[in-house]
Write a protein that binds this DNA or RNA. Structure first.
Lengths: 220, 220
DNA sequence: TAACGACCGTGATAGCTTCTAACGAACGGC
DNA sequence: GCCGTTCGTTAGAAGCTATCACGGTCGTTA
């Protein structure tokens, strides 16, 4: 039978394994932060950890599995920041600022989750679950906003009949619409900024972001 | 001396060279459309063209140069579609629809221009010139819109002093703001749709796009 | 027409990558 | 103390970018 330690609930072997996996992820994070996802090299990680290339495959079946783990961590980290920004009460402005801070802290991490998808790579089921969790926090924040003057256009009516993605959230369609536009507009400004498309244009991206946020919280 | 043909103004050698380069680009386009930019392989292109790998280097110095050429073509193609949508008169709605059609026709081409940047790769000067051309058409379209009720917030005031990117466009700051939000909002909705982030959410991305467009042309 | 030079395609090579397979060593449970 | 699981190694296949040196071809020029 296996002997479990009190602290972690795992055998020493499993603890070692978990630690090595964490170390691998740490190197991968650093590597991705500077060279991006395509620059992630299992070989380089192994060498930097002082072991040979194939040894890594004892811990990760391949590049994709490592990337998936990083995506999972990224979503979890964003959800955590969102939860912190939602305390003591859901707040769309705080959420938006948390999102930008999270993105600027590690742009490649943002691209890993919301950037260009790798064609061959299929996101596993549980990442969409994590994404839904983030979405739920956005819905809560938008539900807490003062209701907009307009009752919502034809798209809000469309959303009334297609609310599978809300996970049973009781928000009215106008709030669903607001949450979606909050997401897409902030992502639009943020992703173009991070991708460097505003470079050399002269204006301050932070002010554009703030202007979008004003438009959203004032009247979507 | 070089002998120029009447039709193309180039020697037969140069015509052949241009034709081969075009064929390479064609294969690259097809390859990128299915496997994305990281899936672009010079070797595979060469083999599919019936020649050996290194032969390609006679026509393109490397992967980056080929990618740059594709980016250039993409911008040119978008600018062309925008010009067509701006006839007979600048029209923001027509422009937006042209953008979405252009993106859906080849999502990887969209990502090539507006997607996650490759960290090692630096876009050459002339692509920014092409991007400015696209931006100018957007500015023209926004200038032709009926003026918004609001005179513009603090960001519009900021833009008044930072209008280098307009290339001397005489539009008032409110129009500059509108053009920027047109770009970022449409990109936000479009890029998330193309990246598959709306998959399984149930609603129709086209309606979301249309709703954003309504919000923009009605009152930004 | 004959020769020269620019250009094109080839195979060989270096160095990198992911990933599989087979072997030896170390660790932990009984 | 034995024995099996697990770990790390080296070797190797297949792929990629990119460079080099060589031979063939084409166009021009003497």
């Amino acid at each position: 039978m296996r002997q479990e330690t009190a602290e972690t609930g795992a055998t020493p072997r499993e603890r070692y394994r978990a630690q090595v996996r964490a170390e691998i992820k740490d190197h991968a994070r650093r590597q991705i932060a500077t060279a991006g996802a395509p620059g992630l090299s299992l070989n380089a990680i192994a060498k930097r950890m002082g072991m040979s290339g194939p040894a890594l495959y004892r811990y990760y079946a391949g590049r994709d599995e490592l990337l998936t783990d990083l995506v999972r961590d990224a979503y979890r980290s964003l959800a955590e920041d969102f939860r912190a920004a939602s305390a003591p009460a859901p707040d769309a402005r705080a959420l938006a600022h948390a999102l930008r801070a999270w993105a600027l802290a590690d742009p490649q991490r943002y691209f890993l989750t919301f950037g260009t998808p790798v064609p061959g790579y299929e996101a596993p089921e549980d990442t969409t679950v994590l994404a839904r969790e983030v979405m739920t926090l956005m819905l809560d924040a938008c539900a807490a906003l003062p209701p907009a003057g307009s009752p919502g256009g034809p798209f809000a009516a469309h959303l009334e009949e297609h609310r599978e993605w809300t996970g049973g959230h009781p928000a009215p369609p106008a709030v669903l619409h607001r949450a979606l536009t909050l997401w897409t507009r902030l992502h639009g400004a943020l992703s173009l900024e991070l991708a460097g498309h505003f470079a050399g244009m002269g204006f301050d991206p932070a002010l554009l972001y703030e202007a979008e946020l004003d438009a959203l919280t004032g009247d979507g």
